[in-house]
């Protein structure tokens, strides 16, 4: 697949000396849902703002559909729709007027049929004559999406689309994003809800402290780093892991009641679990319950972010 957005060596530093982005390289494939994941202050919004033309980069280049975002900004920006994190709206404008305005701003001829379709798709048609100030937060967010879609962009940026949105609405939003992708729009969303990335993204990029730490197919990422663990809740506590179990990666939890076996679900000996249980039985260890757990994107993410921190600490020392 071809890259619809190509970020090359983009750096951003402020006069204060703060470096928001350290030479970021990133390629977004056409038609994918890409989740940019990172803690608050990681540089997600800065990166999006630079791509969309709100912030000037200190260094580096961005191509949107092969067009330079600075030199050919008209062509580049025409391809992009942006839904910022904050709900910036004109309080007194009507829904339909503000969506039409957005289309005009991008130099497109008026198209009432299209605007109607967008508003209907976003369940806003009934509210088309309402003033922005009358709408709830969730509706405002949808109006902002409608505005971003009004000029028929190829790429849609959603900066924290579900921040402060309740569970129901969040699910609606996810369904909406999928429908949009089905129409061929490439979607880049930032989030700090891991759940969201796990649920929706084709690929995940993790950004922390202005550095992209990893970009990977979500499934691959889960597979590669998806560790499982089996915990046996023992009937009687142990003082140490019996030496007969040393062939497995087994640890005893504090208290001596839980025996945890960490393994890779997808590689290695497929009989490892049954072999372990057999051995446990042979040793006469009773257990009244057992549980398994698969690491989520969240664990992977937390692990990555920590790793990065540790590495930097070491480098500094």
């Amino acid at each position: 697949m071809t890259s619809i957005i190509s970020v090359k060596g983009v750096r951003k530093s402020y006069a204060s000396g703060h470096i928001a982005l350290h030479g970021v390289d990133l390629d977004i494939k056409e038609g994918e849902i890409f989740a940019l994941l990172g803690p608050n202050g990681a540089g997600k919004t800065t990166l999006i703002s630079i791509i969309c033309g709100l912030v000037n980069p200190s260094e580096g280049q961005i191509l949107v559909g092969g067009q330079d975002s600075v030199r050919d900004y008209r062509a580049a920006r025409s391809m992009i729709g942006l839904v910022p994190q904050e709900l910036h709206t004109d309080a007194f404008e009507k829904v339909i007027t503000t969506v039409r305005f957005s289309r005009g701003l991008f130099g497109k001829p008026r198209n009432d049929a299209l605007i109607e379709k967008i508003l209907r798709d976003l369940s806003l048609w009934d509210k088309r004559d309402a003033q922005m100030q009358e709408l709830s937060g969730g509706m405002k967010r949808r109006v902002m999406i409608a505005k971003a879609l009004a000029h028929e962009p190829h790429v849609l940026f959603l900066d924290e689309p579900t921040a402060g949105v309740d569970v129901e609405l969040r699910k609606d939003m996810w369904a909406l994003v999928r429908r949009l992708r089905d129409t061929g729009v490439t979607i880049i969303l930032t989030t700090h809800y891991i759940e969201e990335a796990e649920e929706m993204a084709d690929r995940v990029g993790v950004i922390n402290k202005g550095r992209v730490m990893l970009v990977e197919e979500k499934d691959q990422l889960m597979r590669k780093m998806g560790r499982k663990s089996l915990t046996l809740h023992l009937s009687q506590s142990l003082n140490a892991v019996p030496p007969e179990l040393s062939a497995w990666d087994v640890t005893l939890k504090p208290g001596g009641h839980d025996l945890e076996y960490a393994f890779d679900a997808r590689s290695g000996d497929s009989n490892a679990v049954s072999a372990l249980l057999k051995q446990v039985n042979a040793l006469g260890l009773g257990y009244h319950d057992l549980s398994t757990r698969q690491s989520s994107l969240e664990d992977i993410f937390v692990g990555l972010v920590h790793q990065g921190d540790e590495a930097r600490k070491e480098a500094a020392a």
């Binding site: 709100l54 008209r74 942006l82 910022p84 910036h88 991008f106 505005k147």
Partner: peptide, 14 residues
């Protein structure tokens, strides 16, 4: 002040 400037800045306007 309201932040709606984002749309002007992201539009293909010189």
């Amino acid at each position: 002040w309201t932040g709606t400037i984002y749309e002007i800045l992201s539009a293909p306007l010189s």
